[in-house]
Design a protein around this nucleic acid. Sequence first.
DNA 1: CATTGTTATGCAATTATGTGCATACTATAA
DNA 2: TTATAGTATGCACATAATTGCATAACAATG
Lengths: 179, 179
Amino acid sequence: MALAEAILVCLTDRPMSGYDLAKTFDASIGLFWRASHQQVYRELARLRERNLVESTEVEQRGKPNRIVHTITEAGEHTILQWSLKPCKMPSIKDELLVKFYALETVDIPALSEQLGVRIDQHRGKLNVYHRIKERFYDGHNLSTSQHGKLIALTMGISNETEVIQSLENALVMLQDTQD
Amino acid sequence: MALAEAILVCLTDRPMSGYDLAKTFDASIGLFWRASHQQVYRELARLRERNLVESTEVEQRGKPNRIVHTITEAGEHTILQWSLKPCKMPSIKDELLVKFYALETVDIPALSEQLGVRIDQHRGKLNVYHRIKERFYDGHNLSTSQHGKLIALTMGISNETEVIQSLENALVMLQDTQD
DNA sequence: CATTGTTATGCAATTATGTGCATACTATAA
DNA sequence: TTATAGTATGCACATAATTGCATAACAATG
C-alpha cells in the first residue's frame, strides 16, 4: 500500500490538511501517483492510528476548520524503510491500446476520435509539467529534495513528449487503415 | 470493468481456455492490460453468466481437461458498444517516481539500484516487443486486426525506448546528487 | 523415488479503489 | 435571491485486485 508512503512523502515537504493533500494528488505528485480525496482521507485516518502522522485542528474564519497533519519521526522512518524495498513495475491498464487489439470488431471513427482526445489530454499534462518546471525549477538553486522532484519532472516531460508523438503516428496509421 | 472487454477482445482472435487467456495476459495483450489468472477465471465466470461467452469442456490425454471459451454474437456486440465509449486515461502509480519526491528522506544508493533494476525490466520488455514484431509482423501481409496490433506494438516500442533513455538520464542525475 | 515444473482450474480473505452521497460555511455572479 | 463554485471533511456501499491457498494429473530431472 504505497498510498500511505506517497502521503508521507508529501508531508515531508510541509504539514498539510487532507484537502491540501487531495489537491496535491490532483497536481504535482498526482502526476505519478493518482488518488482521490476519499482515498486520502481514509489513508490519513490509518496513518494517524499507526502514529505516523500527528493531526491538529486549526480554526479558521470564514471557512471550515482544517485538520493539519504533520509527519512524525516514526513516519520518516517508515519512508526510509520503504525506500530500501524494491518497487513494483507500474501495472499498465490502457483501454485505448486494448481497442487497437480488436480493430476488426471496433468502431474505427470512434477510436480515431478517442485518440484525438487522448492526444489533447497528454498535451495538457505536458503543459502543466512545463509550467511547473519554469515556475519552480528553472534558474533556481535546488535543494536535494527539489532536485529529486526535478528529475521526476524531467522524466515526465520526455515521456509525455514521446507519447504525444507516437499517438499522432498511430492516428495517421489508423486513417490509412480506413481506406 | 474493462477486464471483461479485454478478455472478449482476446477471444475475437480464437477460442481460448482460462489458462490460455492467463498466459496471453502475461505476454501479448498483457503488455497493455495486466491481469492475474485469478482475475481471468473470475471474469470468465461472469461473462458466461451474461452469455457473452460459451464454454465447453474439452477432454485431453495426459493433462487436465480444458474449458474452452468462445465469444458469442452478444459478446461481439458488447465490444462494439464499448468501443464507442470514451476511454479513461490510464491511472499512473509508480513508486519509483514517488521515491524521487522525497530524495532527502530516502536511501539514495538503494534508489540507484532500483533504477538499474527498472531499466533492465524495460529493456526486457523492449526485447519482447521486438521479437514479437519480427516474428509476426515484419514482412507479412496484415489483416485489419493484425494491423491494429502492430500499431499498439509500435507505440509500445517507442515508449519503452524513450523510458529506458530517460531512466538512464535519471540515473546519471542521481549520481551527480550523491557528491 | 522424491522433487520440481507445467498444465489447468478455482475459492476465500483481504486490501484497494471508485461512486455516490452528506454536511456545512462562504463568496461571487447572474 | 437563487445558483454556482470553492473550502473542508467524511461515511457507506459496490466493485476490483491481490495474496495465499487448494486441487489434480502428469512429465522430467536428479
